[in-house]
């Protein structure tokens, strides 16, 4: 049985895997049809006919992860690093009958490379489910507070 505390621990652990660049373990947290979505608009509801910054299925997430390792990935020579600071995640939906859980987390995300460092304020919404008893990500929605600003490259994962 899943308890709310497990969901909260899951979200903390997900951030840690990203900070430590343990990307294979991170990908394994997603359901097979899981997605990572970063809207372009504030309060965006549509993913199909409205542009997004990221809208990744597992194929595209794996592509990013493989690319980060690539010998000819010049934008990652040297590599970027990232850092998440999370507020206590809040469980918004806890519905074992439907196997559906939603956790909302405010966070600060830092991405750095060479002499450059960017800070993003983020609200993350994890739609979670369980598969064979393990918590899995159905959808990680990442709302940048300044989603409609002009950005330089964001190469890792808030």
């Amino acid at each position: 049985m899943i308890a709310p505390a497990d969901l909260i621990a899951f979200v903390y652990r997900e951030a840690r895997l990203l900070d430590e660049q343990r990307f294979e373990e991170w990908l394994a947290l997603f359901a097979p049809d899981g997605r990572y979505w970063m809207p372009l608009e504030y309060g965006q509801t549509d993913r199909r006919l409205t542009a997004s910054l990221m809208d990744e299925d597992l194929f595209l997430l794996r592509l990013r992860v493989e690319r980060l390792k690539g010998n000819r990935t010049y934008s990652q020579k040297p590599k970027s690093r990232c850092h998440h600071v999370l507020q206590q995640p809040q469980v918004d939906v806890f519905d074992p009958a439907a196997n559906r859980y939603v956790v909302w987390t405010a966070m600060h995300y830092v991405e750095s490379r060479l002499d450059h460092q960017d800070l993003y304020a983020v609200w993350a919404t994890h739609e979670l489910t369980t598969i064979d008893g393990a918590i899995r990500i159905q959808m990680k929605r990442v709302d940048l507070v300044n989603c409609d600003a002009a950005f330089g490259s964001i190469q890792l994962f808030p």
Binding site: R48, L49, A51, D55, R64, S75, S153
Partner: peptide, 29 residues
Amino acid sequence: PDFLLERTLVYNRLINAPTSVVGHDDLEM
């Protein structure tokens, strides 16, 4: 058909976004 806009938006996101891996390749150069 809407699908043409949908594909164009995927192209734009995959190639031209600040979060696009192709964009990262080019900007680095």
